[in-house]
Nucleic acid binder design. Sequence first.
RNA 1: GCCAGGGUGGCAGAGUUCGGCCUAACGCGUCCGCCUGCAGAGCGGAUCAUCGCCGGUUCAAAUCCGGCCCCUGGCUCCA
Length: 496
Amino acid sequence: MTLRVTNSLTRERERFEPQDPDSVLLYYCGLTTSDPAHLGHARGWVHVDVMHRWLEWLGYDVRHVENFTDVNEKIVARVGEDGDTEADVAASYVRDILRDMRSLNLLRAEVYPRVSEHVPEIVDLVERLIDRGYAYEANGSVYFDVTTFEEYGKLSNQDPDEMEPQGSEDEQAEKRNPADFALWKAGGVDSDEIEQHQHDAAAPAEQAVETAQTWDSPWGRGRPGWHIECSAMSMTHLDDTIDIHVGGQDLVFPHHENEIAQSEAATGETFARYWLHVRLLDAPDEEKMSSSLGNFETVEEAAERYGPNAVRTFLLSTAYHNEATYSPETMAEAEERWDRLERGYERAVDAADSIDARTKVVDQSLRDAIPAIREEFAAAMNDDFNTREALSALLELVNVVNRHLDEHAEYDYRGLRSAVETFEEFGGGVLGLQFGDAADDGGVSVAEEMVELVLDLREQERAAGNYERADELRDDLEALGVEVQDTDDGYEYRFE
RNA sequence: GCCAGGGUGGCAGAGUUCGGCCUAACGCGUCCGCCUGCAGAGCGGAUCAUCGCCGGUUCAAAUCCGGCCCCUGGCUCCA
């Protein structure tokens, strides 16, 4: 069984074979640090995270690089009146974004390179392109001449002649072809452009512009173009040719198309062998969710409100390249799915813990189901990272466990243990869900002891027939986020 | 206009690459039953889809071919 992925370059599902059979070079086009991260970004992160985890499960050594674009007009537009600078604003958003990533239990990338720290590499790359005849200088700016790269348009399947011009009017005047794009931009940033992106609390555009970073180059002082960074950082931290390049599908053109052109022109080698594009998340009004439309739910809000596991369950409940809509309803459903999964896991753990490891009870239907479910999960992941199906397989495992527990007076120890292992290995290790988080820290917490104290009191009230009082106590605990369930063997509870 | 991707039950969403195991998964919702002081959780059962429309190929089509309708994204900063 081998991994197959849908390659945007060919628009076909292909067998995945990295250059080096033991390792995978993975690059993800990260964020421009000009706004808080929203759920749409999280969709990309979580799917890339799961790809990373699955590749490791398959035995590959994964080198994962994810950039931050910390030099950009939109960042300058966020400069406030309190004396901060483009660099300060960017650094502050980088911190927030890394915090958001941690909150979603993402595996760390090996490197999070920033544009501001790679200007020398960018300048080198631009020089190479000029030397090789693919780029030209004009008034201190440098442009890539798209007519020199025959395959220009191969990713987005477009003809440069039919494309609309890229860049501002001033740029148009100095470019040879309308579709040429900037590799290096002379001078600082334009205050009119900044003004367009500014919010309420912004500093006057003229003042903000003063804080924009510029660097020396062979063409004079200036700033790197938008696309060149990813090429430079990908080559610097990975290699001239990488295996997988992932990004949002909104980046197909022009960003990724331009990356291919400038990278392959510079090295003569294939830039990325497999291009995977994550579909944009739709907002409740069915428009795409995006920073520029301002219709987003931030990662911080969502993680706080629903918890990281429900958020991940939501994002993984749709395959990465399909349409997905965020709404209170779809999110609520994801919460239910996650709850069912976690309860199933906890039931299996509790049941296994409650019995002697030496018991000889065997439930053949349980034992047979588990390898089948494992196979289903692996097949789903290998089929272009079909996380929806993978999640379904795990929910099937919940069914199997529950049925076993309900239908048998004596439990199958080994069967339950392998179910628990499957939850942990696939749900935890691959999908990055965190089971039994609250109870995970070993000893019994004070909170638990106090909840038990209250529940013991409630049992006394129930025994005395004071149901009204008992229900009050249960409601009070519920209000504090403690879910109470009565069973034949007494109460059970869990923290929500 | 050009490029890309979609339209599957009340909702959500797999399956379409390589047609048959799809009388269509998993979940949510609704209804009934078991259990329960009640509730929840769980279990059992039920409800719910001629897979956008029309035509074709085939022993066989959600899956292939042709036409049509509708939707979304990209072509401008955006994961």
